[in-house]
């Protein structure tokens, strides 16, 4: 069996799909539909949550206590998704998310995990040399700031609620959401006005 598994992945996929379809287990239409749902999730959804938390104190509290409920409140589909926890950055504490064992990622609110999140270098270095890792993105934390690395090993998925940058006073939620990037919600970068 090991030998047949060494077949090129693209050929394996076609063969497995054909067999599952012939057995009535998985149809092409289902794959197309599932793919469309997955493609629709993107960092813009997490960014909307962040912007709302920045402007609505009650939403911020709700989001920190149950990320999945807070996502659903903005119409983001969470059914069948793992629980979502939210880690709040403050002037004293910066959060960074990694999965050292595989690539657990808050897909419901950020979409597919980016290449770097899945890479061996990111997974190895995040827990051992997190400040050196952040420097790859040009992110430098003050020496006195506590850095908390959250290794996402089990049933929860984690997103970071970054600090609202100075110079954004009076901005609308839409404008605030537009400055929040994927990396800000994993903790490798920090949003700027």
């Amino acid at each position: 069996m090991d030998k047949i598994l060494e077949t090129d992945g693209e050929r394996l996929l076609v063969a497995v799909r054909n067999l599952l379809e012939a057995k009535g287990l998985v149809t092409t239409a289902e794959i197309t539909e599932r793919r469309a749902i997955t493609d629709a999730a993107n960092p813009g959804q997490g960014a909307r949550m962040v912007a709302k938390a920045w402007t609505d104190p009650a939403y911020r509290v709700a989001m920190l206590s149950d990320g999945a409920k807070a996502a659903e409140a903005l119409g983001i589909p969470m059914r069948g998704m793992p629980p979502l926890g939210v880690l709040e950055n403050t002037a004293e504490l910066h959060n960074l998310v990694v999965c050292t064992l595989c690539s657990c990622y808050p897909r419901a609110v950020l979409g597919y995990p980016p290449f770097w999140f899945k890479s061996a270098a990111y997974r190895a270095r995040a827990v051992r040399d997190p400040r050196g890792l952040l420097a790859e993105w040009g992110t430098h934390l003050p020496e006195a700031m506590k850095l908390r690395v959250v290794d996402s090993t089990a049933d929860y998925r984690w997103m970071v609620l970054p600090m609202r940058p100075a110079g954004t006073e009076g901005w609308s939620e839409e404008k605030l959401a537009s400055i929040v990037r994927e990396g800000d919600m994993i903790g490798v970068t920090i949003p700027a006005a």
């Binding site: 997190p130 400040r131 006195a144 506590k146 908390r148 959250v150 089990a154």
Partner: peptide, 9 residues
């Protein structure tokens, strides 16, 4: 740094 914490499930 001695200020880094790891938080793990």
């Amino acid at each position: 740094s001695d200020r880094d914490e790891l938080l793990v499930e």
